[in-house]
Design a protein around this nucleic acid. Structure first.
Lengths: 339, 339
DNA sequence: CGAAAAAGCCAAAGCGCTTTGGAAGGCTCT
DNA sequence: AGAGCCTTCCAAAGCGCTTTGGCTTTTTCG
């Protein structure tokens, strides 16, 4: 059933039927009703391919997925996706994942824009002066950044959590508990979120006349193994930290293991706070010692990004405003006074 | 730059240019070269929307993503996606994720087929007599199942690992080590993979005159917490098992924690084998006691599924054949003779 | 050598929608 | 009453590609 047939059986022109269906004003309300009704009765659904060709809009949002042999997709991605899906589902928005060589995403961005494959894109894990950002900005496709970049002239729309504030709070708590030697086990420090977190910790320490020693800061991909390694390195030093702030629950697993291997205890010998993105399959309260966390649901962020993307597409959101979510500090058993 | 312009500047018809570009035989080789050359020089790229409208092919593969408030996307998904992306990238294949209400995926399948949004789909986590399978089969869209269903009249193309064989091997090893009371901590037992795994364990036990007691089998979503709960329940029984086979590394985390909480040791009091889908961020050799596993890279499976989907689309793969991958049993420190 | 077949190209008709540029009819207003 | 203005609809022209059917020209072969 296509427009032609439908309009024919209504003895109307395609123009009118199309307009009636798409809510244009220049059609009589009664006619509109008739059309709507017939459309529903015959299960008419406009052919998206045709509509796309005519309008250039696809009704889909895009994400360029960095891939490669040595490239692993972040497990956070799937939670973010859950949230995105939650919103997208109710709006019949589809998501197009365009896999790209991690070292050359530009080609892919150009392709999906040139091909008008999607109406908007989102960008995640941005770095300072991230080239993708500059690119999509000049390409002129609506976008939203999940996270933040730095060092751009122009404003851009983003959704981020207050990483600096969260880690500032966490570090401040530890300092208040008397800890003098803090360490930070961070994610990849080329990414902005990691930079902000470090900044937060630094700021808290400086405020109390302390400092974050060069060797008390580790940064690596957020795997269990890297958490373990970092923790071992830190804890075997002479000036071992008495408290660690850690960028992810997965790394925290490794930290806990290292602590055990060294015959230490939490929070007796070491206080630990980690950031929790809220995975359904790994919860901080279920750690051997319930883990204090800075918590922010990445899933909710996904839903919000989808919502704002939809708003940008439909022109409801004009300004390139940033949105920063506060982060909860949840104190559990893994922190205590300095030994 | 579109076809019209290009053909005009070559003084050829659109027909010929189109055919030259798409490798049709009825065009002179020299002409083809000229066309190809000009196309490249001017950076001509056929407009996919137009091509879609004309051919009905989209050059994309689809996946219906079950979502909902209480629905969590499996973390395995992201690894599978990595693999899929690895292949898709080199073939300019995009992946469309269509979020659907987990309880009504049919509508979404019908929509993406009716709209010709994608050329093929894949289905994951199938259950016996899975309705999605029957649906896509009748809808006539090319598809591949990652995993297996059961109880269908028709053949369908799938890629699965030998879950039954793997768990049979694992259980057999434990039996050979003298274990008499085995337990299985399984994933959601409505899914085929879980059924197969249980079958494997059962078969190994029966072969030695043993049995898998009703209460020695747990099944739940594969989270750390569920692993913990199951393990506690099992180990606090009077007839506690001396060996556990576990369906996932994430659950195994919980098992290890439970063992610790109860003051037991691995492998002294309990032998443990888990299935490892090969996550980059959580490796069995890094468990407190290196974990014995049945190993199969879900990422490789993703790549293979993409490859076969492409083959199906282009008509290279005709028959609905199943492909079953063997699984490695990797023995590490977490197994020992029965106490 | 002439008929039949093959090679190489083209014009035009789709694909199914949106949108432009009217046009007809009824209304208001002077 | 006639100019001017809404209201409501329509025919037709895109969007940019593929594909059908047909038309020359060249090659093949008895």
């Amino acid at each position: 059933m296509n427009l032609k047939q439908l309009s024919h059986m209504l003895s109307l022109s395609q123009t009118t039927v199309s307009r009636a269906l798409n809510g244009y004003p220049e059609v009589n309300e009664e006619t509109r009703r008739r059309v709507m009704d017939a459309a529903k009765r015959h299960g008419y659904r406009p052919n998206p391919s045709a509509r796309r060709l005519a309008t250039g809009k696809s009704g889909m949002i895009g994400y360029v997925l960095p891939t490669g042999n040595a490239v692993d997709i972040d497990p956070h991605f799937v939670e973010f996706l859950s949230g995105l899906g939650d919103y997208a589902r109710s709006h019949e928005l589809d998501l197009v994942l365009s896999p790209a060589d991690a070292d050359d995403q530009e080609t892919t961005y150009r392709r999906i824009v040139a091909n008008r494959q999607v109406d908007a894109v989102y960008i995640s894990s941005p770095r300072p002066a991230d080239r993708r950002l500059a690119l999509v900005n000049t390409l002129g496709i609506p976008f939203i950044v999940h996270g933040r970049s730095e060092g751009f002239e122009f404003d851009y729309p983003y959704l981020d959590i207050d990483n600096e504030g969260a880690f500032h709070e966490a570090a401040r708590l530890l300092v208040q508990l008397g800890h003098q030697r803090l360490a930070l086990i961070n994610g990849d420090d080329r990414e902005t979120f990691a930079i902000h977190r470090e900044r937060g910790v630094r700021r808290a320490l400086v405020a109390s006349g302390l400092a974050l020693g060069e060797r008390h800061i580790c940064s690596a991909t957020m795997t269990e193994e890297n958490g373990y390694r970092a923790a071992r390195r830190l804890l075997e030093e002479s000036e071992a930290p008495t408290a660690i702030v850690c960028s992810s629950l997965i790394m925290a697993l490794g930290v806990v293991r290292a602590v055990r291997d060294l015959g230490l205890t939490i929070p007796g010998d070491l206080s630990l706070v980690a950031h929790d993105d809220v995975f359904p399959w790994l919860r901080p309260e279920n750690f051997p010692v319930p883990l204090s966390t800075t918590r922010s649901s990445i899933r909710l962020a996904g839903a919000r990004v989808a919502e704002r993307l939809a708003a940008r597409i439909s022109g409801l959101e004009e300004r390139a405003r940033g949105e920063v979510w506060p982060v909860d500090l949840v104190v559990r058993g893994s922190v205590a006074g300095a030994p």
